[in-house]
Amino acid sequence: MSPPVFRFAPSPNGFLHLGHAYSALLNFDRAREAGGRLLLRIEDIDATRCRPEFEAAIYEDLAWLGIAWETPVRRQSEHLSDYRAALEKLSALGLVYPAFESRAEIARLVAAREADGPWPRDPDGAPLYPGDAKSLSAGEQARLIASGAPYALRLDMAAACWRVASLAWNELGEGPDGERGVVPARPEAWGDVILARKETPTSYHLSVVVDDGLQGISEVVRGQDLFHATSVHRLLQTLLGLPEPAYRHHALIRDEAGRKLSKSSRSTGLRELRDAGASPVGIRALVGLGEVSLGFSQTPP
C-alpha cells in the first residue's frame, strides 16, 4: 500500500499568519504520524496579487517552524495546461458556459430580484448567479467572445448534478456544526460556480481538484472555512474521474473578536512574531499544539 499523501497549499499573496501555521503544522504532524508524505503547493494563479517575495517568505517561515516537505514544489502558474484540459473535458460534456455580466451588473440583477423576495445565497453568503447567460445562442456567445468582452466560464450546476448520483465525502475532522463521518455533498447550494475567467484560466475550485488528483493527495487537511466547498470539489472530482481523498477540516484560529485570521485583515504574521522573540515551540503553543505561553492573545481552536 502506498503511503498517505498530505499537502499544504498557501497562496503567495501575503505573509503567513498563525492560521497558516496551524494548518501547516497539522499536515506535517499527520504525515509523520501516518508514515506519509507532505507536499507543498504554491497556489499562485492570481497574477495580480501573488508576488515572489511572498513565495520566498513561505519557504522561510515553514522551514523556521521545522516543517519539511518534498521537492519539487508544485506552482500552479506552471501547470495551466492541466487546468485547461480539465475545463475542456467539462466543456465537452456540455457543462460550461460563458457569462458576460460584470460584478456590478450581477449586483444590480440580484437587487432587482430581491425586490420580489430574498435571493438565494451560497454557504459563504454570496448571492447565486442571477443571470441568464445559458440562454444565449452559441453564435451570440462566440460574437461576444470575439469582441473582446470579459467573461467568466461557469459550471451549469443543474446539468452537472443531473449527471452524477448522490455524492458524499468521508470527514475525518469536524464541520462547523459538528459534522463527522459520511457527509452528504450538496453542490447545488453553490449555484453556477465560476471555473475560469477570460484573464485567469482557472479558479480555486477547479485547480484544487485537479492538483489534488494529479498529486495523489489521499487526505486533505484544511480549515473549516472550506468545509462546504467540499461539495463542489466532490462534484468536480466525479465529473473529471479523479480519485476522492478523505477530508479533515480543522477549527480556525480566531482573534479576540472571534474573527478568523486573514491576510486581508493584516493579522499578525509569523515574521512579526519571530521578530518579537517567538520560537517554533512557542508558535505551536499559540495554536493549541503545545503548552508554552508567549503572552500573545489568541483564541485556540
Rank of each mutant, 00 (worst) to 15 (best):
P280T: 10
L236G: 10
S262A: 13
D275M: 00
S267N: 03
K260M: 14
L273A: 07
P243T: 15
S265P: 03
P243M: 09
E272C: 00
L273H: 09
A276Y: 00
L273N: 11
K260Q: 01
A229V: 07
A278W: 03
L236Q: 05
L252C: 05
P243Y: 14
E256T: 00
S262L: 01
F227A: 12
I253H: 08
L240K: 06
R259V: 02
P243L: 10
Y247C: 03
L270V: 02
D255V: 15
R266W: 02
R271D: 10
L240Q: 13
A246G: 11
I253K: 05
K263G: 01
A276M: 05
E256I: 01
D275L: 14
V232P: 04
L235K: 11
G241W: 06
P245W: 04
H228Y: 12
S264M: 13
A257I: 02
T268W: 01
E244S: 15
R234Q: 06
G269S: 14
L239W: 14
V232C: 04
H233L: 09
P280I: 06
H250I: 08
D255E: 11
K263H: 10
R266F: 03
L235R: 02
Q237W: 06
G258T: 09
R234H: 10
V232A: 09
R234K: 11
E244F: 15
L239A: 13
H228R: 02
A278N: 10
L239V: 12
R271C: 02
R266P: 06
L240H: 03
E244D: 15
L261N: 03
S267C: 05
E272L: 00
A229M: 15
L239G: 13
S265M: 01
D225A: 08
D275T: 06
L270R: 00
P243S: 06
L236Y: 08
R271I: 12
F227Y: 10
D225E: 11
H250N: 05
L240T: 06
E256N: 02
L235G: 05
R274L: 00
H249D: 05
D255C: 10
F227K: 11
D225L: 13
L240D: 10
S264P: 11
P245C: 02
L242H: 06
G269C: 07
G277D: 02
L240F: 03
G277W: 02
K263V: 00
L239F: 15
V281N: 12
H233P: 07
L240W: 14
A229R: 13
S231P: 04
